[in-house]
Structures are given as structure tokens and as C-alpha cells.
């Protein structure tokens, strides 16, 4: 006698890791996954923020959890013929059901229309190659043309994507140049920095917001801590390059729990609105 085990139903909750229970990396508490999901993937005991996918962020930030996506069909090619890059892309696509490391589009938050982009760590570390750079640049241009506040959330530990070489490096200049034009039009630009945002992404569009918000304890910086340790041959101080460290050193405006980011954004947009900033009627 034999029977097949029924496969568990997937689809809706695709982005939630396997298994029912999870251990908090910070406090060690064993957490029921459903409870964690209800708590926006913030540990109810210690407040640690679990890394979540771009899709979950979109769901929790925007009205109806919706975004009207732009440039959905853009995909990376392998401009240098770099070792194993094609395989990496293929695997990342399969693993994430994303086409590359960024989603961009128009969304509403508290009724305010915004141009929004989000990088996703699960796609090659959220690194910026030509696709991420181009989609971010187009999104900023879209914000300028539509007079929409631009909000970009980053989870990009990888910085510039090594596998696209100099093309990746130049995306830093490209995205920053678009921000220069946005800035001249007096359109608000807000960064939300999440764990981790480093190197080429941090040293370009992720550091240029009029307002910069970070999730608690996110690793944020230019050089990765391991490389710094190897260079200076010293242990790094506790909390180095974390959100609270950047706040203390004047690099960001505020540290905000994931559970409050939506409300903080709505308040900011309302204040820009009161101050006279108006989106183009759409």
C-alpha cells in the first residue's frame, strides 16, 4: 500500500520561509511564524527586524497593498560574459520569482500618490547592475515628470553588481544625476534604508534623500565591516555602521520601526502637502 503526501499549498504566502516556527537571531526566542507575520516580521519579544521581501514591504506600506508596476519586462543581460553570471541570474529568478533586484512603480499611501522603488536583497544581494540602475533612474524621472514624491526603499548589501563591472559602477552616477534634476524641481525624495544597504547603493541614490529614514539596527555604510577589519587590523566597536550609529553621527534623520514606517511616511507627505507641494493631478 502506498499513498502520496499532499504537497502543502503555496502561492499566497510564498515569501514566508518554510516551517511553522522560527528562531529570532537576536534574542533566541522561538516564534510562531503566523504571529511574526502579523507583527510585520518584527520580533515581538526584542524588536529585531527580520529581513522581508520587496513584496511583503509593498503589502505593508501601501494602500490596498498595491503598486502599479513600471518596466516590468526589463531583464539583465551579461554584458561582460562574466564567469557564472548567467547561472546566478537564472537561479535568482527561480528563487525569487523576480526578474531582477528591484520593483518600481506608482503607489498610493494614505491617499497620496508616490513614485516608489524597492530593492530586494534576495536577488543577488539587492545589488545594482544595469537593470536596477535603469529602473531606479526611470522611476526618478517618472516622479519628476508626474510631480510625484519619490520614495526608495533599499535592501542592497551587494552595492554595485560586480558581475556587470564598469556598467554597474556607472549606475551610481546615472541614478544620482536623475536625482539632481528631481531636486531642482522641488519634488520630495525620501529614502528608507533597511538591512543591509552598503557600498555602491549607499554611496549613490540611497544617501541623497531630503529625508532619510532607517529601520532599527540595519547595517548601513560604504565598506563592509569585514574589509574594514582586515584593513585596519582592529575589532570594530559594537553597533558600528548600524542605523543608530548613523543617527548619532548625523547621517540619517530618524530610526523608525517597520511597524511605524507607513504612518511616518503619511505624516511627511501630509506636511510636504501643507507646505505647498502638490502632485500633478492624476
Amino acid at each position: 500500500m502506498f499513498f502520496k503526501k499532499k504537497k502543502p499549498l503555496t502561492g499566497k504566502k510564498k515569501d514566508i520561509p518554510e516551517g511553522l516556527w522560527l528562531k529570532c537571531k537576536k534574542c533566541g526566542e522561538i516564534l510562531y511564524k503566523k504571529e511574526l507575520d502579523n507583527n510585520l516580521w518584527v520580533c515581538p519579544k526584542c524588536g529585531a527586524h527580520f529581513r522581508i521581501s520587496s513584496k511583503i514591504y509593498i503589502n505593508l506600506l501601501f494602500d490596498n497593498g498595491e503598486i502599479e508596476e513600471l518596466d516590468v519586462d526589463m531583464e539583465s543581460i551579461d554584458p561582460l560574459g562574466f564567469p557564472k553570471y548567467k547561472d546566478k541570474l537564472k537561479n535568482s529568478k527561480a528563487k525569487t520569482s523576480l526578474k531582477d533586484g528591484v520593483i518600481s512603480g506608482k503607489a498610493f499611501i494614505g491617499g497620496f500618490p508616490v513614485a516608489f522603488a524597492i530593492t530586494d536583497f534576495s536577488f543577488m544581494g539587492g545589488s545594482m547592475g544595469s537593470v536596477v540602475g535603469e529602473k531606479i533612474a526611470r522611476l526618478i524621472r517618472f516622479g519628476r515628470e508626474q510631480r510625484l514624491p519619490v520614495i526608495i526603499l533599499t535592501s542592497s548589501g551587494g552595492g554595485a553588481r560586480m558581475q556587470e563591472g564598469i556598467f554597474s559602477l556607472m549606475q551610481m552616477a546615472k541614478t544620482s544625476a536623475e536625482l539632481a534634476l528631481l531636486s531642482k524641481e522641488g519634488i520630495p525624495y525620501i529614502n528608507i534604508l533597511t538591512h543591509p544597504t552598503m557600498a555602491g547603493v549607499m554611496a549613490s541614490f540611497a544617501s541623497l534623500g531630503d529625508i532619510i529614514i532607517a529601520e532599527p539596527e540595519a547595517l548601513l555604510g560604504f565598506t563592509g565591516p569585514r574589509v574594514i577589519e582586515q584593513t585596519i587590523r582592529q575589532k570594530l566597536p559594537p553597533g558600528f555602521q548600524r542605523s543608530e550609529f548613523l543617527l548619532e553621527h548625523g547621517m540619517i534623520d530618524m530610526v523608525v520601526s517597520r511597524k511605524e514606517i507607513r504612518e511616518v511616511l503619511i505624516s511627511l507627505l501630509r506636511m510636504f502637502n501643507y507646505a505647498g507641494f502638490k502632485s500633478r493631478a492624476s
Binding site: L179, A203, S207, L208, L220
Partner: peptide, 14 residues
């Protein structure tokens, strides 16, 4: 890092 290497580079690009 304390003095904002990322910010300094980003600002120049912009």
C-alpha cells in the same frame, strides 16, 4: 564611515 564616506561620494555624483 563615521564621517559619511557614502554621503560624500553620493553628493559629489549628484
Amino acid at each position: 564611515e563615521e564621517r559619511g564616506q557614502s554621503e560624500a561620494i553620493a553628493r559629489n555624483l549628484k
